[in-house]
């Protein structure tokens, strides 16, 4: 029994679930470096709306993205209760501002469903799939596609 369960777990992944504008999103735990309390950032001139600015993380300059803004849900009203999730994307770090982190869930890869057909290209590119967490739909996001359009944009500027 024990062995079987372990085998099952080994196929599974752990996700960190968090809330953005009342919706549930999640990220693979291996992508997350740390979670910090929100503190004001330095504005990055000429940046897209979803880039809140940059913060100092032990000497490194980390850009902070507002996920709500990225999904077109308006700017998150940043306050002290919000958290910033520092994630590794490719070889750099970025931070994403979310309302709150809710839980860590262990799931099996097979529980992830393909993203249903939706209109928004931006949203579709970022949502890897959806799954049910305690009866609530959670959206699994891919950070690459969050950073890419923004980074490319900025390089083109």
């Amino acid at each position: 029994m024990q062995a079987e369960r372990e085998a099952e777990y080994s196929k599974g992944i752990e996700l960190v679930a968090f809330n953005v504008n009342g919706q549930k999103y999640c990220l693979e735990i291996t992508k997350i470096r740390e979670i910090r309390r929100w503190s004001p950032v330095t504005v990055l001139p000429h940046s897209p709306a979803e880039v809140l600015g940059v913060m100092n993380l032990r000497g490194a300059v980390i850009p902070i993205f507002d996920l709500a803004c990225f999904f077109g849900m308006g700017k998150t009203q940043a306050n002290e209760r919000n958290v910033v999730i520092i994630c590794a994307v490719r070889d750099r770090s970025i931070g994403i501002l979310v309302e709150s982190v809710s839980e860590i869930v262990s799931i099996d890869m097979s529980e992830i469903q393909e993203t249903p057909k939706i209109k928004s290209e931006t949203t579709k590119s970022v949502i890897q799939g959806v799954l049910s967490v305690e009866g609530e739909m959670a959206r699994l996001i891919s950070l690459n596609s969050i950073v890419d359009p923004i980074a490319t944009d900025m390089e083109l500027l």
Partner: peptide, 18 residues
């Protein structure tokens, strides 16, 4: 501190500092 690696090139800004 270089900005370009983290944020790309920012017009009017050459770099950042702490």
């Amino acid at each position: 501190k270089s900005l370009s690696s983290a944020c790309g090139n920012v017009p009017g800004v050459s770099a950042a500092t702490i």
